[in-house]
Simulated assay, not measured.
Amino acid sequence: MTNDEALDAIDNLQTWGWEKPPALSDEDFSCVIDELFCYLTDRSQIEPYCKTQFLQETIDKSNRRLRAFLPDFRRRFEAGSRNQAEIFIEEAINWSSNKFERMIVNIYIESTQKVRQKHDIKDDMGIDEIIMQLVGCHWQKVAMIAGTVMALRSGLVDTNIAERVKVLVSSGLLESQGSLSNMRYSEVRLPVGKEGAVTDTLS
């Protein structure tokens, strides 16, 4: 079982209310529980009929812990430099009390690092520079860009990022279609034949 398969299984179990749906056989339901139990826990001495309840209680408790831990961790992790990344990762691993929590934290860390590496986002980049790094030659939703920027820089608000996009469009550094007053229904791209490299027009 992979992380994606485990998340799909958890999502299904929560949708089913942690009970076997009519369309699923007893054998298939038990198989899902057994695979998820083995993947997420180190326990072996537990009665089969207790596994579902144990998983539900563990995941419910972990979700409460994650909701309390992740916002502050996310703020510090995104605001920190790349040199500090290892310290934050070690802190998160030490905080995690089970495989489910470690899985969620690792997924978050890996996704953030992939975005930084993919777009070559450096710690000293300004907002406009990050936007220009994220935008390519194909149309992208302004809301998507704003969300990615917020994931890379804590403390920013999507509407402020959308305003910076407007400035870049007005400056001729980006092309737009749709109404920029609504980030969900507007898109931007690099002008044909131009590359995205810019310093902040405002400090």
Score class of each variant (00 low, 15 high):
M144Q: 08
V105S: 04
Y39R: 13
M144K: 10
E195V: 14
L134D: 01
F29C: 13
E163A: 15
I130M: 15
I130G: 10
A68I: 04
R184D: 11
N3V: 10
L66N: 05
G147L: 04
I131V: 15
P22Y: 11
L66S: 06
D60H: 07
M150P: 02
E57P: 02
M183S: 13
S154D: 13
A9N: 07
K20M: 08
N83W: 00
V135F: 00
R43C: 00
E27M: 07
L13V: 02
S30T: 01
L55V: 02
L70D: 07
M1P: 02
Q53Y: 13
D120S: 10
V115L: 12
R76L: 08
A23I: 15
V105C: 08
L13D: 04
E110K: 13
E91C: 03
R74V: 12
F69S: 10
G136V: 01
T15Y: 03
D200I: 13
Q113R: 14
E101F: 05
P71D: 04
I33S: 14
H119W: 14
Q84K: 12
N94C: 00
E175C: 02
E110L: 13
D200E: 14
R65D: 09
V165Y: 08
W16P: 03
I59M: 05
P191F: 02
D11M: 13
I161C: 05
L24P: 04
Q133T: 10
I127F: 02
V198Y: 02
C137K: 08
I87K: 03
L173E: 13
S176C: 14
Q177R: 15
T2V: 06
L7Q: 14
V157L: 02
E175F: 05
D72R: 11
D123L: 11
P21G: 06
L156V: 06
I109E: 11
T148E: 11
E129T: 10
Q84H: 12
T52I: 09
G193R: 09
K99L: 08
I89F: 01
S81C: 04
S30W: 01
F29V: 13
M144W: 04
S186A: 08
L202S: 10
A162W: 00
Q140P: 03
I145T: 14
V149L: 03
I161E: 02
L173I: 10
V165C: 12
E175K: 05
V157G: 09
D120W: 04
N98S: 09
Q133K: 15
Q84I: 11
A9K: 01
S97R: 06
T112P: 03
R76C: 05
S25W: 10
S154N: 15
P22G: 06
M132G: 02
G196M: 03
C31A: 15
W18P: 13
L66A: 05
A23W: 15
D124A: 12
F100L: 04
V167M: 13
I130V: 15
S81K: 11
V32D: 10
D4F: 10
H138N: 14
G196S: 08
N160H: 15
T112C: 11
M103K: 02
